[in-house]
Simulated assay, not measured.
Amino acid sequence: MTPKELVLALFSAAFIEHDPDAARQLVTADYIQHDPQVPTGAEGLMGLIPLVQQSGMTATTHRVITEGDMVVLHNTYDNADAFGAPSLAAFDIFRVEDGKIAEHWDNLQPIPETTASGRGMTDGPTEITDLDKTQANKALVLGFVRDVLGGAAPENVTNYMDPEVYMQHNPSIEDGLSGLMVAIESFAAQGMVITKFEPQFAVAEGNFVFVATDAIMGGEPWAFFDLWRVEDGKIVEHWDVVSPIPAEMAHDNGKF
């Protein structure tokens, strides 16, 4: 199976069919887990599966982004009260090694009833296009993250995006560059200043680029998992899932 097929098979076995035996065949015995609440190793994942089934939680995958041995799923979890909220937006990232899934990262965020832009956290385009532009689009997005979000050269923002064309799915931010700037100023006024924004890995396929970032905001550690869509050499759309990184985890692997 391809990395994408492996990951979708595991996701189906674990979260739809609730079949630990099928799931176990797809992962390495020393499966590395970065979800703060789930123990590492294959058995940590197997222990999660009956809890998912008992809770009645359902999962929907909206986008699948694959590059090399990395696969990103953009998901919604419903009936997820047992895991923190009625509905959760999530990114699940898997690394494949020698025909099995060897590592998993994720980030989850409650989905609010209303958003600043009127868009949901997971709706919008899903079609992957421009495969020949994958690396150029990846470089564009990483430049935007470095210069604009990381603060290295924010004056270069128009190199990466049209200020008027930036469709926003973050529930707290309105469309356009103006919406992003207003949000940053609002967060700063609340003491939520970003003092560290360091990408840990990126996964790109065609017009979609995903970046996982280790951040310090308001003096506390946060994880930013962002997905951007690129069109004609400019960033035009953004989804994210943002969550604090807990001090204690069920393993020693860290969030990243």
Rank of each mutant, 00 (worst) to 15 (best):
A202F: 03
V230W: 03
M57V: 12
G84E: 03
W228H: 14
I128R: 07
H251C: 00
T122Y: 12
A42N: 05
A250P: 02
V193N: 15
L131K: 11
A189K: 15
Q168A: 03
T134M: 08
A204M: 02
K255R: 15
T2P: 07
A9S: 14
A59M: 14
M249V: 04
D226Y: 05
E185G: 10
W239G: 04
L108E: 14
L108F: 14
V72E: 06
A136L: 13
V211H: 04
G254Q: 01
A23Q: 08
L48Q: 06
L8D: 05
Q37K: 11
M70T: 12
N137Q: 11
R229F: 07
D30P: 00
A188I: 01
A188P: 01
Q135N: 11
D98L: 11
D78Q: 13
D98M: 09
A139P: 06
A212S: 15
V165W: 10
T115C: 01
D175T: 06
F256L: 08
Q109A: 15
R95Y: 01
G84V: 05
A89D: 03
L180T: 10
E231V: 09
F94R: 00
E17G: 09
A250R: 00
V203P: 00
G254N: 00
N137R: 08
M161R: 08
M46C: 14
G218A: 06
G151A: 03
T213M: 03
N159W: 10
E113M: 12
F197I: 01
F15M: 12
S117F: 05
A223N: 12
Q200T: 13
G151Y: 02
R63P: 01
M167P: 05
V182I: 11
D162Q: 06
M1E: 08
D162P: 04
G254D: 00
E43A: 12
P246E: 07
G118F: 06
N253K: 00
F187Y: 15
